[in-house]
Design a binder for these strands. Structure first.
Length: 402
DNA sequence: AATTTCACG
DNA sequence: ACGTACGTGAAATTA
């Protein structure tokens, strides 16, 4: 699988993706103005000037001078921790806190994406060419660098502006995005053979709502948005190798409550529990875990006497077969799609991969031919009992295609 | 070169 | 008491 993937990735790298630089030049100027305003507001609120981008200076201003939090947490090097998770909980303690979060968001977007991406357009092609690494991620995922096109913003309104700048090659083309739906949870359902999870997928029931219905013991139509939100976090936790501490951090609740939620979960999904225990047991016995196509991840710390170190290995034992099997599946799909595009002599090209998503630069007259091909190859990449679903969209830019 | 933070799945 | 959700890459600051 990895060897035939090489020419496919090479083709994607060579092809590149078009960026509309004008959109970003304008956006950059707008961000610059907003940054200037927020910066001045921070200085005013804090009563002094300092480098807001320096975590060290920021921590000293917030916690030594303004004394925003008497129990301020430190990082392992003794500096004050000022990450988003910390500051968002202190937002009501001092007006400068929210302003700093705003400043961070604006500066990140401008420096990492808006000002950088246009400079990476290759003059010879007029396009952006990422590089895909096949032998970096321990789970078998690809990674992307120089530039990384697997972490382009999408979650915030301003972030969406960056996505809009990724466009089709010309007016005769359109971007098509194809996403696996809940692929990692479907793989857990397949591996564990959990009947209620399989059932939810077979009947097209929203998986987080289904989980909430079980854990909170209410009918599907009485699941509240808060119950669903919590269940979603639990489902993510399952994928990552859940811990009461981790869930309590995500949900911002006491560890005891998180532990109760997890207990309820495993009571309703005992086969998931035994599947996860089986992954750890297999790692202990063999020294590795493997994906559906046999990719191994060795876990030398699985029998460590240090509980923290061992805990990492155990969560890796749970996560690696899931994340890695999803990577196997999309890689097979990529090989088969590429081969079909070549066989049918189509002009359209596969240009990006973002873990569970493929993006294509499609000649408009080929749109209706290519969509069922993409879907069929993605759905049938690896035969499974659980239904696999793919969402496909098209638009003049990456945001619209999503 | 290491640390911290934050963008994505 | 310890110290944790999985996988990445990049920018700015600090050492």
């Amino acid at each position: 699988m990895e060897m035939p993937l090489i020419p496919v990735l090479a083709g994607m790298e060579t092809e590149g993706v078009a960026l509309d630089p004008n959109a970003l030049v304008e956006f950059s100027a707008q961000l610059e103005k907003e940054i200037t305003v927020v910066e001045a507001a921070v200085y005013e609120a804090a009563g002094m000037k300092f480098n807001i981008s320096s975590p060290k200076q920021l921590g000293e201003v917030f916690f030594d001078i303004l004394k925003i939090d008497p129990k301020a947490k430190k990082t392992k090097t003794g500096q004050y921790a000022t990450g988003e998770d910390i500051l968002s909980k202190l937002a009501d303690k001092h007006p400068a806190v929210q302003m700093v979060l705003e400043y961070r968001g604006l500066v990140k977007l401008k420096n990492t994406y808006v000002d950088t991406l246009p400079s990476m357009i290759k003059p010879r092609t007029g396009r952006i060419h990422t590089s895909y690494q096949q032998a970096v991620a321990a789970t078998g995922r690809l990674s992307s660098n120089n530039p990384n096109l697997q972490n382009i913003p999408i979650r915030t309104e301003r972030g969406k502006e960056v996505r809009k700048a990724f466009v089709a090659r010309n007016a005769n083309y359109i971007l098509v995005s194809a996403d696996y739906s809940q692929i990692e949870l479907r793989i857990i359902a397949e591996f564990s053979k959990d009947e209620s999870m399989l059932n939810a997928f077979r009947h097209g029931i929203d998986i987080h709502t289904s989980t909430a219905s079980k854990v909170y013991n209410v009918p599907l139509d009485q699941v509240t948005s808060e119950m669903r939100r919590n269940a979603k976090m639990v489902n993510f936790g399952i994928i990552y190798g859940i811990s009461a501490f981790g869930l309590s951090q995500r949900l911002n609740i006491p560890r005891k409550e998180a532990a109760t939620i997890i207990e309820n979960y495993f009571r309703e999904f005992p086969t998931i529990k035994s599947y996860m225990d089986g992954s750890i047991e297999s790692a202990r016995k063999n020294g590795y875990v493997e994906t559906i196509l046999g990719r191994k991840r060795y876990l030398r710390d699985i029998n460590s006497a240090n509980a923290v170190v061992r805990g990492f290995a155990e969560r890796n034992a749970i996560n690696a077969p899931i994340q890695g099997s999803a990577a196997d599946m999309i890689k097979v799909a990529m090989i088969n799609i590429h081969q079909t595009l070549v066989d049918l002599n189509l002009k359209s090209k596969m240009i990006l991969q973002v873990h569970d998503e493929l993006v294509f630069d499609v000649a408009i007259e080929e749109l209706e031919i290519i969509k069922p091909i993409i879907r069929e190859k993605m759905v049938n990449a690896i035969q499974m009992k659980v239904p696999i679903e793919v969402e496909i969209g098209a638009g003049k830019n990456w945001l619209e295609a999503h």
